[in-house]
Design a protein around this nucleic acid. Sequence first.
DNA 1: CAGTATCCTCGCAGATACTG
DNA 2: CAGTATCTGCGAGGATACTG
Lengths: 172, 172
Amino acid sequence: MTRTSLSRYPCPVARAVDVIGDPWCLLVLRDAIAGVRRFSDFRDRLGVSAKILTDRLNRLVDQDVLERQETNPGKQRFEYELTAKGRELAPALIALMQWGERWTFEPGRSPVRLSVRDTGEALAPIRLETATGREVQVDDLEMSATEAAPDITKHAYAALKARANRNKDAQT
Amino acid sequence: MTRTSLSRYPCPVARAVDVIGDPWCLLVLRDAIAGVRRFSDFRDRLGVSAKILTDRLNRLVDQDVLERQETNPGKQRFEYELTAKGRELAPALIALMQWGERWTFEPGRSPVRLSVRDTGEALAPIRLETATGREVQVDDLEMSATEAAPDITKHAYAALKARANRNKDAQT
DNA sequence: CAGTATCCTCGCAGATACTG
DNA sequence: CAGTATCTGCGAGGATACTG
């Protein structure tokens, strides 16, 4: 049954759910926020079929959450970049992440802290840092956070904005 | 294709999405956070079929997000109450709400502020208050928030906890 | 690389009727 | 009231092959 469109509901939650309430969309968004940009990277990380990925990316572009850019004209190379609208979904994703960290893991597990490193590269990688200071390169895009890091939203968000601005500058 | 279970992924976002990444679950949760408790109320508000609602409620109960309680023994009356785990999803829902308010409505629309009224009743209703001070009884469960109310999460969350505690007391 | 195209299957979800 | 039972179909999503 064609999923009922919630986009005309008066409830902002329903509308948000309409845009990003799909499991794949949420995961695409997670990766986008973490800095993933290319089709093949999304596909490989998510392990999703090209068809589904195409569908979700198009949907998010239509919704103005992502923007498709041709980075190397004539070379079939595109990047999907977060728009302002998309970037502002970070707090919601981070809230989910924090909840997931708190409630979906075995107790006693070493908590991990998210650190969005602004390395100055176009594709700033996200690294993880455990409570003991050990740093881990993210392989499976493990985003995480301790409860004791309430400023994480601000931090991550600032890094996202900085990254976006840098890319905008690079284009001009 | 049986939706791939994400529950064993190392990523907390994926795990959270596994629990509540479904559109209906998110809307059920929205209503639960707003104080809805009974099967028929969820059904009527969401306009969803009994089968789907049953499925989602069971799923959420299995995941320990909701708790099913028999409120009137022998009378086929139950209530689905948020657990601590469920209540802590409020920030995520509120983040979605704020995003929805900001990005999915026409500009110029009067922003609305969420106010979780702690009226002392078991089923404290949620009311809305517009920027001009006009108060609106929620019919379609319009949850909303202005950008200028960053403390809204704290506020709503405190009300939820208070409500849960009062109910717990009432049982003993 | 970044997708399309095609096939095929499973299960989500609506509708309707029924039950304790 | 709070579901269960049954029927049905559409479409989501995997697999595979192909294209500019």
